[in-house]
């Protein structure tokens, strides 16, 4: 018993943790947070580590001496904003399943949690912007009209191959479609329906995600802050980060 206690105690020692959060964390939604664990012992491995961030644990079977492993730990953050302190708990029943030993560690690491996306009554894009209808752009896309025929280049999707034309010629030909463009929208959370600012932010979060997904350039007006409409994931994250930080002092 004493030897197993000693081994079990050593098993949880000299471990270093670092969070590797996903790029998007929404309040109230369970997400998998990457945890990087390093075994600072040169030779002695660690076994059967159950790592949790206040929720269900993730198990790491073996961590060799001096090595680093990653596990995805389910976690739920209750509120939006910047989370600076995290309590990570490691438990293990190694070496003998008579006792479970645990060790908690506070991890200072800043994480931005976006507001919880709340489906609010669909607000048509025209209510949020002046323009309506689809607009074609000069960029290549996958949904618009055929703009021209081009030679096949590596990486082109197979469905774009113009088989009839390719059959007539010696080389593979692909259809080039123009990308359809959606009208830009501007979201002002404070004008959105909701009983509280949190509900309004949740609604804004949902709308930003929804419009960006549908290809609209999205802008944000939040008090004095105005962010011009743009597309892309990076832009979405920028907008959501602003929502997350709003009114956080």
């Amino acid at each position: 018993m004493s030897v197993s206690g000693l081994l079990g105690n050593r098993n949880l020692k000299h471990l270093e943790f670092e969070l590797e959060p996903p790029s998007e964390i929404y309040a109230g939604n369970e997400t998998l947070v990457g945890v990087k664990i390093r075994n600072r012992r040169r030779r002695v491995p660690a076994f059967l580590l159950d790592i949790s961030l206040g929720g269900k644990p993730a198990c790491l079977l073996l961590l060799r001496g001096g090595e680093t492993e990653r596990v995805a730990v389910p976690a739920t953050f209750a509120r939006r904003g910047i989370h600076k302190q995290h309590r990570i708990e490691v438990t293990s029943n190694f070496p003998i399943n008579f006792f479970i030993r645990s060790r908690a560690r506070n991890l200072p690491q800043a994480l931005t949690v976006f507001p919880r996306p709340r489906h609010c009554a669909t607000i048509p894009a025209e209510d949020l912007a002046g323009q309506t209808g689809e607009q074609e752009t000069n960029r290549r896309g996958l949904e618009g009209e055929i703009s021209r025929i081009d030679d096949y280049r590596s990486g082109d999707p197979l469905k774009m191959i113009h088989w009839k034309l390719s059959a007539r010629q010696d080389t593979l030909k692909v259809k080039q479609l123009s990308a359809t463009a959606q009208p830009p929208v501007e979201i002002d959370p404070l004008r959105l329906p909701g009983r509280s600012i949190e509900e309004q932010l949740s609604c804004a979060c949902y709308l930003i995600d929804d419009y960006i997904r549908r290809g609209h350039p999205v802008g944000l007006k939040l008090g004095k802050l105005v962010i011009p409409a743009a597309e892309g994931r990076q832009h979405k994250i920028r907008l959501l980060t602003e929502l997350a930080h709003y009114d956080q002092g």
């Binding site: 079977l61 073996l62 190694f94 070496p95 399943n97």
Partner: peptide
């Protein structure tokens, strides 16, 4: 007893050569 701890974690668990050696 040590293996039993692993077995209780997941009865279908398999261990590779390096894992066995470390264990």
């Amino acid at each position: 007893l040590v293996l039993l701890t692993f077995y209780n974690q997941d009865p279908g668990m398999r261990l590779g050569k390096r894992q066995r050696r470390a264990l």
